[in-house]
Design a protein around this nucleic acid. Structure first.
Lengths: 142, 142, 142, 142
DNA sequence: GTGGTCTAGACCACG
DNA sequence: GTGGTCTAGACCACC
């Protein structure tokens, strides 16, 4: 099974950080277990159709943070010293993103109803994109 | 009275954009009113302990967006609200902000229902702030 | 091939705006096509013997206007044409340019009839340039 | 009779230069004769509702250029060494302004018909403004 | 006094 | 290699 990573090249968040965050999250919820090996830089780079340097950069940061560890000649693995976001941090960050959207809506004279609709459309769009990618990934390695 | 701007120099978000967002939000919720003068470039730069050019850049962008206007030799003011962007551009920008929220939600394993709830809470919070401000303004000039 | 940009350092018009206008005009008449890459900031700065920041500023403004787009780590390109501004803003800007012409006409004691004639001549000149370019493009890719 | 100067504070051209150009033009076409006295800085500033420094600056530049001369304690007068724009310069500058408008029109997908209409509207607007000012000036000193 | 422009040069982010 | 950000400091334009 694919790890289901996805990247949004047009996002404000740099690609390497998107990857970093998703790996960290996957470790936190147990989708990636302690000691488990990650895809090689080149494999993941090909899967996401991005520059290998970008993947390497994400791994590097996670190694520095103690989430991953590199075993010479064998690859990159989930380290014992993994860390997760606290619930408070999670709530804080989601609230912050929501407020950003609300401010933009205010600026553009959009009401709650319209804003909610736009959110739902963005959500569907994103879900569609993800499932499309998973399908094409399954075709490659069924 | 100070506008209570603050910056986080270590943030991923560039300083000039932090200022820009805070001003835009202050205008959106009515903390800054149409015609009101902003602190001078030099004053705000001193207050935030940053380079005047950085403040100037933030002002510059807001002037281009039609939020502020510069009056030669006198300073920078909140401009009359007018629609600068086309409907397509407006939709593009709102969609972009919504996608940011969706990405954050996906990262934290929040479903659409929870995300929608968070949006609504943020919305109420903002509306509360706005009406509180309007009420206090009516008391001043009834 | 060089794009033939040139600047007049002694002009009242700021350098970055001279560059901006020349690029915008090059795009308008088809001298620069959608998707085409612009000279790098450093290259153009060297060619014009000015500071790279000044070139960057010109690019920056055109990106904000939706004329150019920056692709991270790769360079700056002519972007797909899209309508960024509202009808009101579009009218505002056209009116502004028209007023500039009227002021100049008034200054030189030209009447409306003569001014209109001058406008029509300039228009023909530009159209000629555009169609000449289109013709030569068809020859390349018939 | 008023000299019929007018200024457009919203123009790209600085106010002091607008005044400077109009005086120079008035001298060129004989509306102001050699040896004739100009309004005092304060008078003209009041008439145009602008800062006296701005008028002084315009006079200063014209004195430097030899168009005007200052006679200590008596005022500012049209000098013998006046100069005018050549016909070629006049045509060049009008054509340049017209081209600017055409480029803007191209960018905004406006046709010749629409552009001509916008020019005519701007023209009427300007004429209206001028006659309005003359009327109010006559009221003050009939 | 105000903001606007430009330079020089450093450092960072991204691919 | 690309562009993006920030600083320091100069000079100018305007009121």
């Amino acid at each position: 099974m694919s790890l289901g990573f996805f990247i949004a090249p047009a996002s404000d968040v740099p690609i390497f950080r998107q990857i970093q965050q998703q790996i960290q999250q996957a470790v936190a919820v147990g989708k990636l277990r302690v000691g488990e090996q990650l895809p090689t830089v080149r494999t993941l780079a090909e899967e996401l159709v991005i520059n290998p340097n970008t993947v390497a950069r994400a791994y590097q940061e996670l190694i520095r943070d103690g989430v991953l560890e590199s075993r010479a000649g064998r690859g990159v693995f989930v380290s014992e010293r993994r860390q997760v976001f606290s619930d408070a941090e999670r709530a804080r960050r989601l609230r912050h993103s929501a407020l950003q959207l609300c401010h933009e809506a205010l600026l553009f004279d959009a009401g709650l109803t319209e804003t909610r609709r736009i959110l739902e459309e963005a959500w569907s769009e994103l879900q569609g994109e993800i499932s499309r990618r998973e399908t094409s990934a399954e075709k490659k390695q069924p």
